Simulated assay, not measured.
Amino acid sequence: MTDFAPTARTTIRRRPDRGSYDRDLVHAIIDEALLCHVSIIVGREPLVIPTSITRIAEDVYIHGSNKNRLITSIEDGARASIAVTHTDGVVVGRSGFGCSLEYRSVVIFGRASLVPAEDKERVMNAVLQDIIPGYGGRRLKPSELAATRIVRFPLEEVSAKVRNHGVLDVEEDYQRDIWGGVIPLSLVAGEPVSDDRIRPGVDIPDYARSYRR
């Protein structure tokens, strides 16, 4: 597929060399994410809410309860901006001016549409498998689906921005006897901890033991 076309809102102006409209890169950054931050205006006040995000083809989905303020505001037609960010390392320069972060980010602009009732179960199953690949819980009840709202954002106005350049110090600082480098960061899953009400004989499933992002 073709890359995303830059728009007035998605054009990277600050450090454009770090910007990208590559569709595969955008997909990869979104797919690795567990959380995004959704920004809207409610009344005359800004509102930023963290929530889970799932991509299916060329759309992203967020969900919440029927009374969720973010979801109901978006459903009413509010414009929104979604940000996804991964922090990959701490850049340690030889001066404070040279310190930074390595990161990958995506910003999405648009309006959401409400997912109809007949599609809720399919989308929620995709959300569960995205967050917990291999998940094997029971089927969602109709009452649970009825208590949940899901909204869809098309991937149309999108840009990515990546910093992976390591240390970029002032030239004279390279002659100083001061350490510079990158401290890598990553999200690592620990050992699963069983709920204290697990029934006897129920083992930790493979999808929990081998979980990773």
Score class of each variant (00 low, 15 high):
E75A: 10
Y174R: 10
G64Y: 08
L185G: 14
I108V: 10
I71L: 03
E118D: 15
D17F: 07
G201T: 03
P184G: 01
E58L: 04
P116V: 01
D24S: 13
R23N: 09
D196A: 13
C36G: 03
T85I: 09
G93E: 08
V158M: 14
A126D: 03
S20I: 07
T2C: 15
I12Q: 14
V92H: 02
I178V: 06
A189P: 11
R176C: 07
L101E: 06
D196H: 11
I74D: 13
T2G: 15
I53A: 14
V42H: 15
D31P: 07
A189R: 06
R163M: 07
D203H: 01
P46N: 12
R9K: 12
W179M: 02
P192G: 08
T11K: 15
L70I: 05
T2W: 05
R69Q: 04
L35G: 05
R122T: 05
A5Y: 07
V84F: 04
C36Q: 01
D22P: 03
K141A: 15
L70A: 13
Y61W: 05
V42R: 15
P46H: 13
G181H: 06
E144S: 09
I41C: 11
V167I: 08
I131Y: 00
E191P: 04
E157M: 03
I30A: 03
A28P: 03
R213C: 02
F4W: 00
Y103N: 06
V182A: 03
M1H: 13
A5T: 09
G77M: 02
N66I: 03
L145S: 05
Y211A: 09
A147Q: 10
A189Y: 12
R197Q: 15
H63K: 00
S210T: 13
I41Y: 04
A28M: 01
S95D: 01
V158K: 06
I74V: 14
I71Q: 05
H165E: 15
S210K: 09
F97K: 09
I204K: 11
D173A: 06
P205H: 09
P16W: 01
S113D: 15
V91W: 10
I204D: 11
D22S: 13
A160N: 09
I53L: 11
E172W: 06
E58F: 08
Y174E: 08
L25W: 01
Y135P: 10
D76C: 14
Y135G: 09
D22C: 11
L140T: 11
P6G: 06
I49E: 11
R94V: 01
A126K: 02
V91R: 06
I41N: 10
G19H: 04
L101I: 05
A57H: 08
M1C: 08
G137Y: 08
A208C: 13
P116F: 03
R163V: 08
A28T: 02
D3Q: 00
E32H: 06
P184I: 02
R111V: 10
Y21W: 06
F4P: 04
I198H: 12
L185E: 12
I132G: 04
V151D: 11
